[in-house]
Design a protein around this nucleic acid. Structure first.
Length: 631
RNA sequence: GGUCUCGUAGCUCAGCUGGAUAGAGCAGCUCACUUCUAAUGAGCAGGUCUUUGGUUCGAAUCCAAACGGGAUCACCA
């Protein structure tokens, strides 16, 4: 309805305003609740041209539009705002239109360009945690939203499966895993532990032993025992120790950190891990076997976690593959003069003229770094999918700088598609106790959390749900659906860019702005439909204000889907659904539906309800959340 | 310290392409189930939109500075 108004105003600008107008002057907004009307036009921009009071200007525009547009039933001007009343018939016809479309709000499938959405991309040395949940739910949802907008989407991830961190858990497993009576070390099958958990356990074990060794080295040094260490080390230690005298606590702490780093570098454990990395790069058969074995455990563990999360991927990339390509590209770039080599053989790019720093791409020993791999991965992806028109990296905002640099490097290498790369930078998840810190054991494990929310959904459903006649399987599925729905909705309802607070108690809440609140509304409608019937035909009838508000909101759905894609923000969808459900609950509570005696009214209300359920279901699926028919 | 980012009710968050009296949820206090699922709805109370300047007919929204959180500045990923 905005479009015809805009058209008429632009077409008749000379007559109305005495000259052409900028369409940007035509600003619509929702009519305030307290004021009667369905749509509001802001008059202020026109006041100057019309050289009269805002009220006169409003009346002039209002009467002109009312004459031209039959759907404007009446209008009134209040302090510079022109409020239109839109006719009942118009809203009814809108409802009819929505009712016809099973995929209401969605653009035709594959009608737009191909986009890759990268998300998850975990390290293979630690189990997934709460932060990964936000990442995965966000990435998955953004992919769904883009699909709804007609894009062809490739969901992808890069698996960080190589590097010193992987060697650490491998080494710790070899050294510290106890042997059972059969002489085997711990494996997922002989311990019953999930693969990622088992490997993570040894990563932690490495860190523990590593720190212990460093500590004992420092103790030796403090006693003045430097046997076996170079003069350089002992001098540095003495220098740092003496610097502590007379400094404040903070400075002393910093110096102690440096001493610790010094000692860590001297540990036999780190040396062994580094040796292992060198062997890995040389494809030493034994190390490679260990690597593939332990990685396969992790992948198995991740697969089950992803399944639980309800996320999936079309194409996986492995760092162990792409780093080679990255290295080749860097060497090529070196020849082209994009990069330069320092005396020690390390390769760099100078980005100071772009306001950034110098960045390392190859170490002096020729090995690659994170950036090198990311260059290789990006190029690999465009090779695999030449039709790609964009790539979205769902990665935490602590890597903002990294991606700025990455995209700039790609651009400097001459890849035009670098322009279409976008870092979907999301904020960290905090706990009420503060930041998650692995060292302090405050990391919330993804599997544990998902298990807890489902368990809690079970308890609450058994207390108040409508479960009679449901099979055991149906119940289990319902509990999963409610628990996971609550968790996903909780993590997706806030603006992804913002740092957010995760309160475990609040995440299993059922009232207010929560997943189960919305799921409940859906179940309630489905129960109505089951009793009142579907496949009804809409007849002309009067509509009340509750119905009208809902239809107005339904009409906005296609626009919200577009906005959510533009902003890459599932939060916009979540807010929209919440608003819709609140409106519907008010209607439900105040207006009779099945017990309405006027058949036409009853049918209209049922059709309205059905379409609300349709939109709830479709929009929740954009968030990756399923909705039950009963609960 | 440089760069980036955030600051809205006791708490968690909307609102930010400038527009009417700044909104929800939670927590607190009331009220409504012989009626379609009360996992609901209605109401009360709660605000210097961090501060100070500027732009404007009009600023939570744009600009600048200050203050306060956070991130980042590795031959880590």
């Amino acid at each position: 309805m905005e479009n015809p108004i805009t058209e008429i105003l632009v077409d008749n600008a000379v007559h109305l305003f005495g000259g052409e107008i900028d369409p940007k002057m035509i600003q619509f907004q929702k009519t305030r609740k307290e004021v009667e009307g369905d749509l509001t036009l802001v008059i202020f921009p026109f006041v100057k041209a019309l050289r009269c009071s805002p009220d006169d200007a409003g009346n002039k525009i209002g009467s002109f539009l009312m004459e031209k547009l039959p759907f404007i039933a009446s209008y009134q001007v209040i302090s510079g705002f022109l409020n239109f009343n839109i006719s009942s018939d118009y809203w009814l016809s809108q409802l009819e239109e929505i009712d016809k479309q099973s995929d209401f709000g969605f653009a035709p499938k594959d009608s737009k360009s191909m986009i890759m959405v990268e998300y998850s991309s975990p390290n293979t040395n630690k189990p997934l945690h709460l932060g990964h949940l936000r990442n995965n739910f966000l990435g998955y949802s953004v992919a769904e939203i883009l699909k709804a907008n007609g894009h062809k989407v490739i969901k992808s991830q890069i698996i960080n499966d190589r590097g010193i961190h992987i060697c650490k858990s491998m080494l710790a497993w070899e050294k510290f895993s106890p042997l059972n009576e059969k002489g085997e070390r711990e494996t997922p099958s002989n311990t019953g532990l999930k693969g990622d958990k088992l490997v993570g356990k040894y990563y932690v074990e490495f860190d523990k032993q590593f720190n212990a060794e460093a500590k004992s080295i420092i103790e030796l040094w403090e006693k003045g025992d430097f046997s076996g260490f170079s003069n350089k080390i002992s001098e540095e230690f003495i220098r740092l120790s003496e610097a502590k005298a007379g400094k404040d606590d903070k400075a002393v702490k910093g110096l102690d950190e440096k001493i610790k780093d010094l000692a860590k570098n001297e540990t036999s454990l780190l040396k062994e891990a580094k040796d292992m990395l060198v062997k890995w790069e040389a494809r030493d058969p034994q190390v490679y076997l260990l690597w593939t074995t332990m990685n396969s455990w992790v992948y198995e563990g991740f697969a089950s976690t992803y399944k639980e999360m309800g996320v999936d991927f079309e194409k996986l990339y492995y760092e162990s593959d792409t780093f080679i390509l990255g290295k080749d590209i860097v060497i090529e770039g070196l020849q082209k003069g994009v990069f330069y080599k320092k005396e020690d053989g390390s390769v760099w790019i100078d980005l100071t003229s772009d306001g950034l720093d110098e960045k390392l791409l190859l170490r002096s020993d020729g090995t690659t770094v994170y950036m090198t791999q990311d260059v290789g991965t990006a190029v690999d992806r465009y090779k695999d999918f030449p039709d790609l028109q964009g790539m979205i990296y769902t990665v935490g905002n602590e890597q903002d700088y990294h991606f700025k640099v990455l995209f700039l490097i790609l651009k400097k290498l001459g890849y035009e598609w670098a322009e279409n790369c976008f870092h979907l930078s999301y904020g960290m998840v905090d706990l009420p106790s503060g930041k998650m810190k692995s060292r302090e054991g405050t990391v919330v494990d993804a599997d544990d959390l998902m298990h807890e929310v489902v368990q809690s959904a079970k308890e609450m459903s058994q207390e108040r749900g409508y479960l009679e006649g449901m099979t055991e399987d149906e119940r289990t599925n319902l509990f999963r659906l409610i628990g996971m729905g609550g968790l996903k909705y909780f993590l997706l309802k806030v603006d992804p860019r913002k740092r957010m607070m995760f309160d475990p108690a609040e995440s299993i809440e059922l009232n207010g702005n929560t997943g189960p609140f919305i799921q409940y509304a859906h179940a309630r409608i489905k129960s109505l439909i089951a009793k009142g019937g579907s496949d009804l035909t809409l007849n002309k009838t009067e509509i009340g204000s509750f119905e009208k508000e809902i239809i107005k909101h339904l009409v906005e759905y296609p626009l919200v889907i577009k906005d959510a894609a533009k902003e890459l923000s599932p939060a916009l969808i979540a807010n929209y659904i919440y608003e819709l459900v609140k409106l519907y609950n008010q209607f439900y509570q105040n207006v009779p539906i099945l017990i309405e005696e006027d058949e036409k009214l009853k049918v209209m209300r049922l059709i309205l309800s059905e379409n609300v359920a349709k939109v709830i279901k479709s929009s929740m699926l954009l968030l990756g959340v399923e909705v039950p028919n009963r609960m």
